[in-house]
Design a protein around this nucleic acid. Structure first.
Ligand SMILES: [Zn+2]
Ligand SMILES: [Zn+2]
Ligand SMILES: [Zn+2]
Ligand SMILES: [Zn+2]
Lengths: 142, 142
DNA sequence: TATGTTTATGCAGCAGTGTTGCGTAAATAA
DNA sequence: TTATTTACGCAACACTGCTGCATAAACATA
């Protein structure tokens, strides 16, 4: 982790009116380093048990609220999170990209270059949010 | 539950080479009656604690394996299941419809009349399955 | 830099969820 | 009806997510 990245992490936190704490910086570092979606249990493993489970929960919830990360739906019981790259803010997420889950390596990634297609809903349904999760084989594993 | 439906339930089970047991019949009845997606905890409530939690888990897993039900991704930790209406079979699910989760009533339903759109993936990615979950307000709640 | 106030963290404890092993009961085959 | 196969129920366990509260850390102010 370069000093440059560390500086941008503190900037991110300040921009969301969050105080700079070791846990928050570390979790953001993990997001940046991982370059993909992380599930909850990953943080404890990756961070080497250096902070409490409860703190991780609260930190992720805070990041979600502030529009720093977004959650990705899964068909298992874990929730995955990834950094918001567009300019999301508090109560105003607008990540409109597709998520890809590789069946080989298990990684889930944000396909930032994609956009979710227009969905034609039956009459009477109003859409607020659309989640598209594609599973298959990623370009590393093919 | 009419006798006619009961007969078709036993047919469903026989078609998948599953023995006819009270639990399996009851769970299929609940699916048919609910007309939507059920999450795990629903079964225990709806069935009035008439069978064990473990049995429910195993039954749902069996139904998933046999292509009788499909799972629907969520951003919470619950998994929702719904009956497959197309002719899915063991190891060969091909439900290509959109799922809708209502933010008002909380219900999740299969929009059987819809089809998932073509998704343009970046080079190197191979898609096996596409899940589209739209959240918003359903036609009952608007 | 030192001090007071606000905020985040860690811990203990709890409820809910999902899994495994094993003996018993039920369903199917004969 | 009996034998064999399969499913069920129970006990026990691990994991997950949450809450309250005391303490520690971060921030604002002087
Ligand atoms: Zn992969
Ligand atoms: Zn994403
Ligand atoms: Zn509704
Ligand atoms: Zn469906």
């Amino acid at each position: 982790m370069s000093n440059k990245t560390k500086a941008s992490i503190t900037d991110m936190l300040r921009a969301s009116n969050l105080s700079i704490t070791d846990t928050r910086v570390k979790i953001l570092e993990l997001f940046i380093d991982s370059n993909g979606a992380l599930e909850h249990s990953s943080f404890e493993k990756l961070a080497g048990h250096s902070f409490d489970r409860v703190t991780v929960y609260r930190t992720l919830q805070t990041f979600l609220d502030k529009g720093i990360i977004h959650s990705i739906p899964t068909t298992d019981t874990s929730i995955r999170y990834a950094l918001c790259k567009s300019d999301c803010s508090e109560h105003d997420h607008h990540d409109h990209h597709i998520h890809f889950k590789c069946e080989e390596c298990g990684n889930t990634i944000c396909l930032d270059e994609t956009t979710v297609p227009e969905i034609q809903l039956p009459k009477g349904y109003a859409a607020h949010n659309i989640d598209v999760v594609v599973s298959g084989v990623c370009k590393e594993c093919k």
